[in-house]
Design a protein around this nucleic acid. Structure first.
Lengths: 340, 340
DNA sequence: CTGAAAGCGCTAACAG
DNA sequence: CTGTTAGCGCTTTCAG
């Protein structure tokens, strides 16, 4: 039923059928003014009849522009990235560009394959959340392309940056807990390989030292941004002789797992443990208890990132000139309370 | 810093630089056996030096295969689809294919644009969750391409289908509530435009009539699969003179909004209202209360869909021959209880 | 208004 | 082992 594998019909097929030259067909199809209306209509109709669809490869070869931009994110299951992807798709759409969405899984090799593929298809620009340990080839490729690094910053990459102040975010989260009277505050964070990991850890440590609290390595769990890891990290923390009374969690995905751990142990939050999450997700307002979180302005950041990218492409869209970086905001809910 | 806009170097540039023919360069780069090792190395090195990246458009034109498949989903923010996208990306990856992920937002025009773009770039196959009101052009295009319709079925599309038994799913959910003693059971569902909407509504009605309960139109809210709509739908239901004692919710996104409504009104679930959700999402086990849900085997379905697609492409992967369609499973948690 | 012809980057057949 | 050549589908001069 599906899949008639015969090669797609071309401009020449149309020309042959009509007994005219393929050049005329090309003109007719691209609304060139110097074509008789009658011819144009005829061409249109037979194109439709033959199921003609232009070959973008051929078109690309002629005038070099693909009208595609690439977006590489670590994980579409992370609400933060999927929201970003939606927003960016919307913006590209509006500008008549196609968005090619790729998932790196934070794997440098996968990332490289995607960048390579994007470059081979001659995308005009790339939006990327770099994995932090990008291969040199990846970096070299990106440095030859209009690129915007989104959220994470790779110092080896000479591209524009649109990021939030992650350090401030975890600083705020930690400070909030300290001011509630907590002292044994744990941190679950994403790895240092990415800038965001480094910043989030730094923000936590900054708050701790600012209030003269000892930063204990054993209270820091640095793991991947996946629910399972949040789950096991919190379990380990809670199995300590002196478990923490509060925890800052560096990723919404980890928060999900952590909450599962809490639930399994029958602990009450915030009674037994206060929690503050980095990044605010939809579900955090309906979970039990609703999670206090540090929220980032995803929408604005996406807008800015696309604006910058299309700026680099010469499409000067209106660029709003708010100041970098974007500020996080503490959203108070019920998962953090004064220490008893 | 970024973005040197000079045109990418070609095979000919390499040839010129080395004083050899571009054919030799081509051979060297594609590991043709009849090339002197020395030459091959030389070519490799200069290719690297010049930052050469093959032009996939040109390559495509030569031997017709793009090694890309397309995936069109309605919404990446829906955990169900993002999980599916991840799984499918993984499978394609393994087979050396690139996955081009597109988001239709359930908008027929956007869907058409994507299908058109995919066809223009000569993707070898398409996995699609059809929006239900696809344009005739979309259908025509898809019918000329190896296609697998995933989850939703468009009767006008002659493509293979991989779907769950959605009717059974809501039937099970509704039956569960009926057996708990509920009678005034509401339904919040996605629109009838898609097969899934029709099936989910049918399953609910089937269970109701089977137990001789009246199907009241005013207890059915048919709205888009977005949190806001779940929110307002449930609010309307709860504002009735005789509000339902239980509700079946046809989408995880709607469930999120519904939970928000419940929370705002200070109602207790399942005390004041029992809920069962269609589709099980990560967060449903940590929300308050944990939601009883009908779960679908996403993983297996994705595997099957990709197997079928690559089967159509002639790559005969091992196809497991479980029976269609896939069966839902009721996951009992705490959001549904006997009616007092 | 339309046709002939060149060329985009690449591969493959055919000669050496 | 390598060079020459043709051609994939399309746009774009340049001539009519």
């Amino acid at each position: 039923m599906t899949a008639e594998r015969r090669p797609a019909s071309t401009i020449k097929d149309i020309a042959r059928q009509l007994g005219i030259s393929h050049a005329t067909v090309s003109r007719a199809l691209s609304d060139h003014p110097l074509v008789k209306d009658e011819t144009r209509e005829l061409v249109r109709r037979t194109a439709e009849a033959l199921g003609y669809v232009p070959n973008s490869g051929a078109r690309l070869m002629r005038h070099g522009l693909s009208h595609v931009v690439g977006l590489i994110v670590p994980d579409v299951q992370n609400e933060f990235y999927s929201a970003a992807a939606s927003a960016m798709a919307e913006h590209c759409q509006r500008l008549g560009y196609q968005l090619n969405l790729c998932v790196s899984e934070d794997d440098p090799n996968r990332e490289e394959r995607h960048v390579q593929a994007l470059r081979e298809s001659r995308v005009e620009g790339v939006l990327i959340v770099p994995c932090g340990s990008s291969t040199t080839r990846t970096l070299a490729l990106l440095n030859k392309l209009p690129t915007v690094q989104f959220l994470r910053t790779d110092p080896r990459l000479g591209a524009a940056v649109v990021a939030a102040d992650d350090e401030l975010a975890t600083y705020m989260a930690t400070k909030h807990l300290i001011e509630l009277g907590h002292q044994r505050i744990a941190l679950i964070s994403v790895p240092r390989s990415a800038s965001t990991g480094r910043q989030r850890i730094a923000g936590y440590e900054l708050a701790m030292t600012e209030y003269s609290l000892k930063v204990q390595p054993s209270l820091q769990k640095v793991v991947s941004a996946r629910p399972e890891f949040g789950y096991s990290a919190l379990n380990e923390l809670l199995s300590r002789r002196y478990p923490p009374t509060a925890v800052v969690i560096g990723s919404s995905r980890q928060a999900l797992g952590a909450l599962r751990a809490v639930r399994e142990r029958g602990l009450s939050v915030p009674g037994d443990l206060s929690m503050v999450a980095f990044a605010d997700s939809d579900w955090m307002q309906v979970c039990s208890p609703p999670l206090t979180a540090v929220s980032l302005p995803v929408g604005e950041m996406c807008l800015r990132a696309t604006q910058i990218l299309f700026g680099l492409l010469g499409k000067t869209t209106t660029v709003d000139d708010a100041t970098l970086p974007f500020s996080p905001q503490l959203v108070l809910r019920d998962s953090a309370s004064p220490r008893e």
